[in-house]
Design a binder for these strands. Sequence first.
DNA 1: ATTTTTTTAGCACAACTGTATTAAAAAAAG
DNA 2: CTTTTTTTAATACAGTTGTGCTAAAAAAAT
Lengths: 197, 197
Amino acid sequence: MPKIVDHESRKIRIAEATWEVIVEDGLEHATVRKIAKKARLSVGSLRNTFPTQSDLLQYSMQLVSERVRKRIESKRYDGAPLDAVLALFSEFLPADDERKIEMEVWFVFSAKTLTDPKLKTLFKKVYHDMHGLFREVLLKLKSAGCLKENFDLEIEATRLHTLIDGLGIHYLLYPEKMTHEKMMNALQFHLQSICKS
Amino acid sequence: MPKIVDHESRKIRIAEATWEVIVEDGLEHATVRKIAKKARLSVGSLRNTFPTQSDLLQYSMQLVSERVRKRIESKRYDGAPLDAVLALFSEFLPADDERKIEMEVWFVFSAKTLTDPKLKTLFKKVYHDMHGLFREVLLKLKSAGCLKENFDLEIEATRLHTLIDGLGIHYLLYPEKMTHEKMMNALQFHLQSICKS
DNA sequence: ATTTTTTTAGCACAACTGTATTAAAAAAAG
DNA sequence: CTTTTTTTAATACAGTTGTGCTAAAAAAAT
């Protein structure tokens, strides 16, 4: 009977190899041959799990979006003190290598969605979840009476969301200008600026 | 004697054609044949002004950075009221088509710098100028006594910079979520939040 | 050991790429 | 018109790409 292979974990392994190639050489050099080599597979074997390159890239992007969304879902706010909120939000900054790779791949694919509308659906979902989390946490802070009076939920969610995305992007693009410490300082200061006391 | 041609304006025309191709089809499809067609030139003629594709892309990116930097330099703050500051900062949001194209090309090239270190110099310069402008304007506001007491120049420059970049990127990536009005509201609110009264 | 399926390696092909070369056409200045 | 240079158009070539195909090797279950 057939040789059994765990297709799911293989797909994941290939997708992660794809990420590595993208981070090292860029999306335009993420060829099937390079990816196969990185995943230590033959091109034929890779083609067996992903018939076309388009399938491969689509899955790779989907996996990033799933990872990010799981990160979001696992981080529901439970009413802990302000330090916990800071810790929660800082989870969306590219602090460790894993998140840095994810965000870098995410960034590269983002640029691609500008000319490849097929990919936009995944991105919209992640944006929606992310924005929803920020709204939810802010709303709970508001309910707990932690926030200042002139509070506009939509504007604050937007400010928080763009601040975090902006910090992360600056960290990726200008690592000699934007440090991890600066990101945390800016985030902490921002939180304090909308809170009472 | 020779047919005279304005090489400088031709280079600009080609670079702008390159931008169009990048915006329409993406950087990886910005081939010399397509760019020549878009600029209504022959490939040979294009190769006469730009010997290699690398030269072409490098100049195209340099032109974007020059345009952005000129925009920055022309926008020195002269001590006008707060509305003027808002108007000044809003110049760096992708409001009209010209700035939207510039920012989109800028964004695409940004993603490329992650794997192509040669391009980083230009980007650092623009970052530096932009950050410097924000610092300068904030400092003048501070000197004029417009700002609140707990004011940290570096953190506020970072917050402002990342907010504006974040807003613009969200506008490019999620046009159905981020509108021009929302960008302006967020920016105005942010300014007010650091100002007295 | 036999059977069944997957995996592998290699080759091949057409399409597209950047780049080079060439000769003809066009244009500007004398 | 003649001369000089640029522009054009066509062709060519080598490299890389995605993809398809085939035969051998490997692996798992009977």
